[in-house]
């Protein structure tokens, strides 16, 4: 049961990691990275690390995503196609 859950969770995490790297809209890719952090915090909870899960959910998925969004707002949202 737990193995199946971990396999599904891991596949979803890898899909979101690849999405975060290859989406052209930077806001969408930052949100994908945030979702990756949130799933990682679920994984920490399964592995009996509630302290780390809490930190990852509050800091990695919440604050870091917001810092990225503030940086994108000050620069440019769409990636140049000729890059």
């Amino acid at each position: 049961m737990t193995d199946v859950f971990i396999i599904v969770l891991g596949l979803v995490m890898i899909v979101f990691a690849i999405l975060a790297l290859y989406l052209k809209d930077l806001v969408a890719s930052v949100i994908a990275a945030g979702v990756l952090s949130l799933f990682a915090s679920i994984l920490y909870l399964i592995m009996q690390a509630p302290d780390v899960a809490m930190t990852e959910a509050a800091i990695g998925a919440g604050l870091l995503t917001m810092i990225f969004l503030l940086a994108i707002k000050k620069t440019k949202q769409i990636e140049d196609p000729n890059d």
Partner: peptide, 17 residues
Amino acid sequence: SPGGGFQGGAVIATVVL
């Protein structure tokens, strides 16, 4: 319980945000 200074500090920063 789980939690502590770093997590609580992040929650406080969320209020300011």
